[in-house]
Design a protein around this nucleic acid. Structure first.
Lengths: 119, 119
DNA sequence: TCCAGTACTGACTATTTTGTAAGTATAAGA
DNA sequence: TCTTATACTTACAAAATAGTCAGTACTGGA
């Protein structure tokens, strides 16, 4: 039996945005629709494969919409659905927090690497 | 060269809360300090190992604090630091979104399973 | 003609993350 | 004495996630 009941709202969000790059994709689409290649440049370090895989999953989940311009060579754009837009709005406070604490977080990450090196 | 520069605040947040259970742990600690065993019951489906591993990482990152009551058998509690509390606050809108869209998300997850079964 | 660029697929591999199961020391209670 | 409970560790196995590289079909430009 697979339980699909969530104990708190957070679990529901994680069910949608679980995936290393998904929050970033939604975030970048918040400022308007983008071509696949643009997203690849915006989302740091994503491989093309992972980008496309996550785009497909987000499309299937109704968070984003795929717009195929039916051209050759291909021209495809992605944009947020209303559902995705509501998600993006809620992501905004997270971004702010991150921007605010960016130095602190950078130090934490640095410290982690330091500890890892010691072992 | 490992880059520790974030392109947007969101990446910083993900650097801290990356890990399947970390957001949930922070969320549950927002309502007060908890014993390890309590957390294990609150965070659905975590294995003891992952819980402890994530607790340790969050402690190292300064998000939570470990309080050892120096007793035998052991009694340990975890609580948010100020840093962690600020994170928890920003997580709240996410929870609300999830609570709001919980039925929609449940359907999405169900649909996913359906598609997976077809293959 | 040859090369670059588009969005995407698929095979295969590597890495990371997560889970399972067992074991540690100790004390209180039946 | 035997069981249960605490917080935690360790070895190992499995699964999720990610990466590399090659290939597709087509066009436009050098």
């Amino acid at each position: 039996m697979t339980e699909t009941k969530f104990r708190c709202g957070l679990e529901a969000v994680l069910a949608i945005l679980g995936g290393k790059w998904k929050p970033l994709i939604v975030y970048h689409l918040a400022s308007g629709s983008k071509r696949t290649g643009q997203l690849r440049r915006l989302v740091t370090n994503v491989s093309e494969k992972m980008l496309i895989q996550h785009l497909k999953e987000l499309t299937d989940d109704g968070v984003i919409r795929r717009i195929d311009f039916q051209k050759v060579p291909p021209h495809v754009e992605y944009e947020l659905t209303d559902f995705g837009r509501s998600l993006a709005q809620v992501l905004a406070p997270l971004c702010e927090w991150g921007t605010h604490h960016i130095d602190e977080v950078a130090m934490i990450v640095k410290k982690r690497e330091h500890v890892a090196k010691a072992a």
